[in-house]
């Protein structure tokens, strides 16, 4: 019975969402009771031919009445907005200690990859009580990563990274659904999120087949795709150095300043002519078609690892 009428509140966000939802349900129920109550009681009391008093309208039924309920409605709605918006703003960015998981969506499958390189399909294992940041992209159409028990949903776009995060609070297995219509087998694009104890998760992770982690895969691509020919510290070509780049603000030749985030790095590989770093010539060729989305995720992880090493020095 419980499973039919209640959805588990399995993340920190779920509690917040359900709080706002409960308030909205109460406001709606009261409003509906008021409107239906008035409709029904007027309909009965003032049915044609009833003995109820008609005649001159009381003074109170006038313009002030109208202004009054307009203002009351407005302030109620403004309060609801403020409450919902502050919950939203509070949950915008993942905590710094979040585990990072990469998600690649395609028709009709979820591929997930942990920071140490372990890969899963239509599954995701995560530890309880630890924030998890999902960095997601799609290989074809728009999908949407939806975990009802966590109250999170985020569209997954081709050609761009989107992010969301959650912190699971309950152990168990929860459904993962695609919520953006993506073609024939949209409704079969489902998976499972398994929330484990921290130590179980560590054990599970170490038992996974040894894959290189993303940064190491990226390092190999950096050489095999020829990036290092210009961007390695030892290179003689005049190209921006990548050490410490990630997260820094970059001055562009047209005067703009951008933050070197995942999206910027992706664009720089695929459309290098778009954002030229100040002081450099636009000589880099586009790697569109040469790198797939997984390659870009790996290269981005590699560039980020350069930044981290730099930061530790």
């Amino acid at each position: 019975m419980n499973a039919i009428f209640a959805l588990p509140e399995a993340s920190t966000q779920a509690v917040r969402v359900d709080g706002i939802l409960a308030a909205l349900v109460i406001v709606s129920a009261l409003t509906l009771a008021l409107v239906f109550g008035l409709l029904v009681s007027f309909a009965i009391r003032y049915r044609r031919g009833s003995k109820a008093k008609r005649g001159r309208l009381p003074e109170i039924v006038n313009r002030e009445f109208e202004v009054g309920w307009t203002a009351a409605t407005f302030f109620l709605f403004a309060f609801l907005f403020w409450w919902a918006a502050s919950a939203d703003v509070g949950a915008l960015t993942a905590p710094a200690n979040a585990l990072e998981v990469h998600v690649l969506a395609k028709q009709w499958m979820w591929k997930t990859q942990h920071a140490n390189g372990a890969r899963e399909i239509d599954e995701l294992h995560v530890p309880v009580g630890r924030p998890v940041r999902l960095v997601m992209t799609s290989q074809d159409v728009i999908h949407s990563f939806f975990v009802p028990a966590f109250r999170i949903k985020q569209d997954v776009l081709p050609g761009r990274n989107t992010e969301t995060w959650f912190q699971a609070t309950k152990l168990g297995v929860f459904p993962l659904l695609c919520a953006e219509y993506c073609g024939t087998n949209h409704s079969a694009m489902r998976g499972r999120i398994t929330v484990m104890r921290e130590e179980d998760y560590a054990r599970w992770l170490s038992a996974q087949p040894e894959g290189d982690d993303l940064a190491h895969v990226g390092a190999k691509l950096f050489v095999s795709q020829g990036c290092s020919g210009c961007h390695a510290s030892s290179s003689a070509v005049h190209a921006p150095k990548l050490e410490g780049l990630y997260g820094r603000t970059v001055q562009l030749s047209d005067g703009r300043q951008v933050r070197a985030d995942d999206a910027y790095i992706r664009d720089s590989m695929l459309q290098p002519k778009r954002d030229i770093v100040a002081g450099f010539d636009p000589i880099m060729p586009s790697f569109a078609g040469l790198l797939d989305d997984g390659d870009i995720q790996s290269l981005t992880a590699f560039i980020r690892s350069l930044g981290q090493e730099h930061g530790h020095d």
Binding site: Q13, R16, V17, I20, L21, L24, L80, F81, W83, A84, A85, A87, D88, A91, S144, F146, P148, R151, I152, K153, Q154, A179, E180
Partner: peptide, 10 residues
């Protein structure tokens, strides 16, 4: 309400 919409949209 954004947080509720995130859950129930689509």
């Amino acid at each position: 309400s954004i947080p509720v919409d995130v859950h129930v949209t689509d």
